[in-house]
């Protein structure tokens, strides 16, 4: 029995044109037994940064609180909001502190970062459970359905998708991937982050 597969769940993030999206299923399980179909594992960090925490459910709660604490400390000390790049490194170093007794979480981050000219640039990243960062230009995936997410995303994703098209792409990718994964599914939620609003939708999914 793998600890990474105890509770199940998957997260994916994608880059679009001046927007990013992050999505996850809502299942919490105990191995094959489904426990909850409304388990949140994506959390807002700032107005423009979201983090998804697939993996061991108890560590989801712990890490969410840890990140909240560290982001608050950063905001107080720096007197400004944390940028997604900075947050990614915060996540990475938090996980690496526990290099030989890790949290069993593989975080996925999505956000818009400020450019010097005052615009916004899409940013996504993911790490493994000990904090090895992966800055991808297209999409990042994690969780029990990661292989399936990779396969579908590689087939559906294309560059420069507008917000609504990106929503459709990430939703289709997630739904079709988790439908082939026994440990993921039971509902899904999508967040699309644009420069002036965040679109959050819960999807109608297969519940078997």
């Amino acid at each position: 029995m793998s600890i990474m597969e105890l509770n199940g769940g998957s997260v994916i993030a994608m880059v679009g044109k001046d927007c990013v999206a992050i999505a996850s299923d809502l299942r919490l399980g105990n191995q094959a037994l489904g426990i909850s179909s409304s388990f949140q594992r994506i959390f807002p960090v700032t107005d423009r940064v979201y983090v998804g925490l697939p993996g061991l459910a108890t560590d989801v709660t712990t890490l969410r609180e840890r990140f909240r604490y560290r982001v608050n400390m950063y905001t107080i000390k720096e007197e400004r909001e944390i940028e997604p790049e900075t947050f990614a490194h915060l996540v990475s170093s938090t996980l690496y502190e526990h290099r030989f007794g890790p949290y069993f979480i593989e975080p996925v981050m999505a956000g818009l970062s400020k450019t010097p000219s005052g615009g916004y640039k899409p940013f996504i990243a993911a790490t493994d459970l000990i904090g090895c960062l992966n800055f991808a230009k297209d999409f990042v995936v994690a969780g029990t359905a990661s292989a399936k997410l990779f396969g579908v995303a590689e087939g559906l994703w294309e560059p420069d998708l507008e917000a609504e098209d990106l929503f459709e792409t990430i939703s289709q990718t997630l739904l079709n991937a988790v439908d082939r994964d026994a440990y993921s599914g039971w509902g899904a939620i999508v967040h699309v982050i644009t420069k002036d609003k965040i679109i959050t939708r819960t999807l109608k999914a297969r519940m078997d």
Binding site: F150, L175, D179
Partner: peptide
């Protein structure tokens, strides 16, 4: 690569979730 390809086929051939 079954786990990569099969869900893609579900979507594109069977129109699953569409």
């Amino acid at each position: 690569a079954q786990s990569l390809v099969q869900p893609f086929l579900d979507n594109q051939i069977y129109f699953k979730n569409q």
